[in-house]
């Protein structure tokens, strides 16, 4: 006759948790457009609408920020998305970079 084993209490595994900031887990970048004297204002507005799908008001707000303040932070995104946006902006010959968001 098989014996019945006493129930064994297994201790809960200890999970070590580290606290990390969001940037350490997945670094994010600002996609920045910089001012230059060569790209036409109407063209820059058009490009922002094409790439980001913004309405005219939002696109013009960022275009004016580029024009008047020298740069505009367009979007904050993860590495791949930020790279994608920078490449798209460069296809239109806008001066765009990606800068660490922290």
């Amino acid at each position: 006759m098989p014996s019945t084993a006493e129930p064994v209490t297994v201790p809960e595994p200890v999970v070590e948790r580290e606290t990390r900031s969001a940037s350490q887990l997945a670094p994010t970048f600002w996609v920045v457009c910089w001012n230059d004297p060569v790209n036409l204002m109407v063209y820059v507005t058009h490009v922002f609408r094409q790439i980001f799908g913004w309405d005219k008001v939002k696109a013009e707000k960022h275009m004016l920020e580029v024009h008047e303040k020298g740069k505009s932070l367009l979007v904050r995104a993860g590495l791949e998305k930020a790279e994608f946006y920078v490449h798209e902006l460069h296809k239109y010959k806008l001066h765009a970079t990606m800068e660490p968001a922290e």
């Binding site: 920045v32 910089w34 790279e83 920078v86 490449h87 460069h90 970079t97 990606m98 800068e99 660490p100």
Partner: peptide, 18 residues
């Protein structure tokens, strides 16, 4: 140029790819 602040290897690789 892909960045005005980053000068590390990853940024250089991203710039080459761009």
């Amino acid at each position: 140029a892909i960045s005005r602040t980053e000068v590390n290897l990853e940024a250089r690789e991203r710039e080459t790819w761009l």
